[in-house]
Design a protein around this nucleic acid. Structure first.
Length: 487
DNA sequence: AAAAAAG
C-alpha cells in the first residue's frame, strides 16, 4: 500500500513524499478514501496513529478541487481542544498544502486578535481553531460559514471533558446543514456517541487504536517514593541516566511551576507549560523544549494529548493523573514511530488508588523499580488487577463499551516501522500524527527529516535497583466525573 | 479535585 493509490493528487503526494512518507498508516488507509468519497467519518484514534494526516490530506484534496474561499468565508473548519494542538494541526495543513493554491489560518485565544482578523478577511480555505476564539471571531462577524463544506472535530472526547460541548453546539448551529463531518476521538464513549448522533450522518466508522497502544513500544515502570522525595528523585534520575529531553507531567499548575524551579536550581534547564502561562510563554516553552534549549518541560495535562514532539524519548509522571485514561495519553507522547520510549511514574503511597485504576485500565501491573536511597518511609501497597470491586466509580462507564477486547497486541503500530531505517517504509503514522514536522523538512531527497539525528534507541536506560516498600494511604474520593452528560 | 478555553 502506498499513498499513490489513495486518490490524492500530485501536489499533495509530492508534499507527503517530501516528508519522507510512503506508506499510509492504518487509519490513513481507511480514512483517506472515505473522506474523498465525501462520507462522514467517525474515527477512534489517538495522536500518533497518523490521525492528523488522515484528515488533512483528503481535506486538502477535496478543497483543491472546488472553488476557493470568498472574503470572510471558510471552507473547512478544524476544531481542537488546546491552542498547541491547533498550532500543530495548522502546521500540518501548511506542510501538506504547500503545493496547492489554498489559504489556511489558525486562530486561538491568548494572542492578539487583529492579525487573525486580517487573515480571515480575505477568506481561508482551511481554518484551524479552538472554540472560544472562534466564537469571538464569529460574533464579530469576522468569519462566515456560508461556504463551509467540511467540519473536523479533533480530540472530540477531550472537548467534552473540557466542557466545550456548549461552544461546540453553538458553532454547529451556525454551520450550513449540508456539509461533511469528520470526528476524531480517542475513544467512543457514550457521550461521544451522543454527540455524534447529532453530528455525523451514516458515518464510516474507523477504529485503529487500542487504548493502550503505547504499551507495545514504551517501556513503562514505576518508582515507589515518598511524596516529599519526588523532586530529588527526579533530579537523580535525570542526571544518572543522562536524560536529555524529558517531558514531566504534574497534576497541578502550581506543582509544575514549583518543580520547574527545583530543576533549575539543580542545574537542569527546565520550563513549565500550563494554562495559566501566557500564550507567549507556552509557545516559547514548547519551542525551547523541541529545540533542546530546555532539557525538561514540566506540563499539566494540557500536554497530555496530541502534542507531537519528534522522537521524544522520555516521559515522567511526577504525579499520576486523576483520570486513568490520561495516563495512556501521557505516555503516548513517547515511543512513537516505532522508536523506543520510556515512561516512568513516581508513585507515592497516597497515589495507590490512582495506580490501581491505571493498572486495571491497561490490564497489567507495572514493574516497580526502587531507586537506591529513595526507599519510601510510607511503603507503596501492592497493587492488583482484580478485585477491588469494580474499581470504578462511574468514570469508567463512559468507556465501558470500549474496554474489552483490545489488548496491547499488534494494532496501532501495525506497520512496525523499522526504527533503523527511517528512509524506507516510513509510514506517516509513525511520526506523530504524521503531520507536522516541527522543523523545516529537509527534503533532501533521501526522505529523512532533520531530526532523525536523534538517538532512537537509547540503550534501555538503566534504572534503579533494589526496591523497598512501605505504606500509608489516603483516600481519593472516587466519583470522578468530568464529562457532561449530554449538553 | 484538576485541567483547558474568550476576555
Amino acid at each position: 500500500m502506498s499513498f499513490t493509490s489513495l486518490g490524492l493528487s500530485a501536489p499533495i503526494l509530492k508534499a507527503v513524499a517530501e516528508q519522507g512518507y510512503d506508506t499510509p498508516s492504518p487509519i490513513q488507509a481507511q480514512a483517506i478514501p472515505a473522506v474523498l468519497e465525501g462520507k462522514d467519518v467517525m474515527a477512534a484514534a489517538q495522536t500518533g496513529t497518523g490521525k492528523t494526516a488522515g484528515f488533512t490530506l483528503p481535506l486538502l484534496e477535496l478543497l483543491s478541487r472546488g472553488t476557493k474561499a470568498q472574503a470572510g468565508q471558510v471552507r473547512a473548519l478544524v476544531l481542537t481542544p488546546t491552542r498547541e494542538l491547533a498550532a500543530q494541526v495548522a502546521e500540518s495543513v501548511a506542510t501538506y498544502g504547500k503545493n496547492l493554491p489554498l489559504r489556511s489560518a489558525v486562530v486561538f485565544g491568548g494572542v492578539p486578535i487583529n492579525p487573525q482578523l486580517a487573515k480571515l478577511r480575505h477568506g481561508v480555505d482551511v481554518l484551524v481553531a479552538t472554540p472560544g476564539r472562534l466564537m469571538d471571531l464569529y460574533n464579530q462577524k469576522a468569519v462566515k460559514f456560508n461556504q463551509l463544506e467540511i467540519l473536523v472535530l479533533d480530540e472530540a472526547d477531550r472537548m467534552l471533558d473540557m466542557g466545550f460541548i456548549r461552544d461546540i453546539r453553538k458553532i454547529l448551529a451556525v454551520l450550513p446543514k449540508e456539509r461533511q463531518n469528520l470526528m476524531f476521538s480517542a475513544t467512543f464513549s457514550d457521550e461521544i456517541r451522543q454527540l455524534a448522533k447529532g453530528l455525523v450522518n451514516n458515518p464510516v466508522e474507523i477504529s485503529v487504536t487500542p487504548r493502550n497502544a503505547a504499551a507495545t513500544t514504551v517501556k513503562q515502570w514505576i518508582c515507589p517514593v515518598d511524596k516529599g522525595q519526588k523532586s530529588a528523585l527526579l533530579i537523580k534520575l535525570i542526571k544518572d541516566n543522562d536524560w536529555q529531553q524529558v517531558l514531566v507531567f504534574s497534576r497541578t499548575k502550581h506543582g509544575a511551576n514549583r518543580l520547574a524551579k527545583n530543576l533549575e536550581e539543580a542545574g537542569i534547564k527546565a520550563a513549565a507549560i500550563h494554562g495559566n502561562k501566557s500564550q507567549t510563554a507556552r509557545t516559547k516553552a514548547l519551542a525551547d523544549f523541541k529545540s533542546g534549549a530546555v532539557r525538561v518541560m514540566v506540563a499539566t495535562d494540557i500536554a497530555a494529548r496530541g502534542l507531537d514532539i519528534d522522537q521524544l524519548p522520555q516521559v515522567v509522571n511526577f504525579d499520576l493523573p486523576n483520570v486513568p485514561e490520561d495516563y495512556v495519553h501521557r505516555i503516548g507522547r513517547t515511543g512513537r514511530a516505532g522508536a523506543s520510549g520510556q515512561a516512568v511514574s513516581l508513585v507515592s503511597a497516597e497515589e495507590i488508588k490512582l495506580l490501581n485504576d491505571i493498572e486495571r485500565l491497561i490490564n497489567r501491573l507495572l514493574d516497580r523499580e526502587q531507586v537506591e536511597g529513595f526507599t519510601p518511609v510510607h511503603p507503596l501497597p501492592e497493587s492488583r488487577l482484580t478485585q477491588g470491586g469494580k474499581a470504578s466509580h462511574g468514570r469508567r462507564n463512559a468507556n465501558a463499551g470500549h474496554r474489552d477486547g483490545q489488548r496491547s497486541g499488534d494494532v496501532a503500530r501495525g506497520h512496525k516501522p523499522n526504527d533503523k531505517n527511517p528512509r524506507h517504509q516510513r509510514s506517516a503514522q509513525g511520526d506523530k500524527d504524521a503531520a507536522k514536522p516541527a522543523r523545516a523538512p529537509r527534503a533532501n531527497g533521501d526522505g529523512r527529516r532533520q531530526n532523525d539525528s536523534q538517538p532512537q534507541g537509547k540503550a534501555a536506560a538503566p534504572h534503579a535497583q533494589g526496591p523497598k516498600p512501605t505504606g500509608e494511604r489516603r483516600s481519593h474520593s472516587g466519583g470522578n466525573r468530568s464529562r457532561n452528560p449530554q449538553g
